[in-house]
Computed example of a mutant assay.
Amino acid sequence: MPFLGQDWRSPGQSWVKTEDGWKRFLDQHSNYVSDINSTLHYFNVENNKENLYNNLNYDISAKKRKKDLLNNNTKTQYFYQEKWIYVHKGSTKERHGYCTLGEAFNRLDFSTAILDSRKFNYVVRLLELIAKSQLTSLSGIAQKNYMNILEKVVQKVLKDQQSIRLIKELLQTLYSSLCTLVQGLGKSVLVGNINFWVPRMETILDWQQQLHNIQITRPAVKGTTLTDLPLCLQMNIIQRLTDGRDIVCLGQVSLDLQVLSEDRLLWKKLCHYHFTERQIRKRLIISDNGTLDWKKMYFKLVRCYPRREQYGDTLQFCQHCHILSWKGTEHPCTANNPESCLVSLSPQDFINLFRF
């Protein structure tokens, strides 16, 4: 049976019994002194031990300052990159404490997830929601991981030249939230003082400038383009776009695409995809010819209601064993039918999971 008490003869120290009572045996100190003596002999300074002791103390202090500097400037991520984590919301005999949003953000492998095109939009949306309202609930390490992952996202977009508007909106949301939080000087709303967050805000502005100056390059490989396809195939492809702004931008490429982008049936399907019948009936807009203007209705509905979110791959939560993992990841579940216990989580559901 292990000894759990805090005795004055604690493990890690050697004690000997003498006539005056128990005394600590300084075995470690003797080893330390022998190491010092060997160092003295190596440098041939046996006659100047005091200076060497001072030098050793100076080296220890220098190493400590160097370690502190690396901890402040390092971009290494302090998470475990686990495939699944157990979400516990209370203390039990087996587990003490509870799992927080910052802990889940550190331990789940979000850094690798952004490299997967099926998970990229999911992670970006999660970063945006955290920037809006959850920055103050993250620990210092979680906030550092947040900035490191965000940097990887920006670098990926600059390299691939995709999802530029999505990342611009994310950076603008984060910068606006930080401006609001740092205005209250002296308040403990963020981990670290104002001098620690100002360089991060400057970095965000620099990222915004880089995204603003990006130039889309046309691929060198020549082949069939969108306009070379039949009109029915072009319309079929346009109908796969879920953002009305993408359809408007696509219509600015050529006159033929502009005609397709103004199709009433296209905007009607888009409205019914994102919004309910009740929401649509509340925002009806009649055009001059007496018909419904579905394009104007869409942009009006977007300002009033949230759009439908759909992702290729999401996080999933097991209701039986309370394990959180990426979709398709096996976890040790004791249920007879583990697949029936899994629930896909949206980014907002992920955040709500840690609200106690």
Results as ranks from 00 to 15, higher is better:
N47S: 11
K152A: 12
K119W: 00
M297D: 01
L135I: 00
R118M: 08
F43V: 09
I216R: 06
N51H: 07
V33K: 08
H212G: 06
C341P: 12
W15A: 06
K156R: 08
L342F: 08
F3A: 11
W267L: 05
D35T: 09
P199H: 04
N337S: 12
H88I: 02
L150A: 07
S344C: 11
V253S: 05
L342M: 09
Q81M: 08
Y305D: 11
S137E: 04
Y298N: 00
L315I: 07
K159T: 15
L115T: 11
Q13C: 12
E151M: 13
L353M: 02
R24V: 15
L229Y: 02
R355P: 10
A131V: 03
S137G: 02
P199N: 04
C333H: 04
N121F: 05
W294S: 00
K83T: 15
S38C: 09
K93R: 13
L101A: 00
F120L: 03
E309H: 06
K295L: 01
K222R: 10
S133V: 02
Q215Y: 10
H322V: 05
P199R: 07
G244S: 00
L301R: 00
N73S: 15
L185E: 12
M147Y: 08
R107Q: 06
N37K: 15
L101Q: 01
E50A: 09
Q209D: 08
T276L: 01
G251V: 05
K159L: 15
W197I: 06
G312P: 00
P199I: 06
D246E: 03
R308Y: 12
I149G: 03
A220D: 09
I60R: 10
L324Q: 03
Y80E: 13
L40E: 02
N72A: 15
N44L: 10
L324N: 01
M1C: 12
R65G: 07
I351R: 05
K268D: 05
L190D: 00
H41N: 12
L250K: 02
Q172I: 13
Y298I: 00
N55F: 15
Q316F: 08
Y98L: 07
L345T: 02
Q215A: 11
S137L: 02
H322S: 14
Q348Y: 09
A220M: 10
L108D: 03
R283W: 12
I286M: 07
L69H: 11
D293W: 01
N352C: 11
K327Q: 15
L270D: 00
N31S: 11
L127P: 02
T314Y: 08
R118K: 08
L52S: 00
S14K: 13
E46L: 07
T100A: 02
K268G: 04
N37W: 14
D109C: 01
E128Y: 06
P306N: 10
E169T: 07
D160L: 10
K83M: 14
V221N: 05
S163D: 13
L205P: 04
S177R: 09
V198R: 14
Q77F: 13
A104E: 00
E19T: 13
Q77H: 13
E151G: 13
F25H: 11
D35H: 10
Q183E: 14
L181G: 06
W207C: 03
G12I: 02
D59R: 12
T217Q: 12
Q13P: 08
L315Y: 02
V16S: 13
T329F: 05
L353G: 03
Y98I: 04
F43Y: 07
T334P: 10
T136N: 10
Q209A: 06
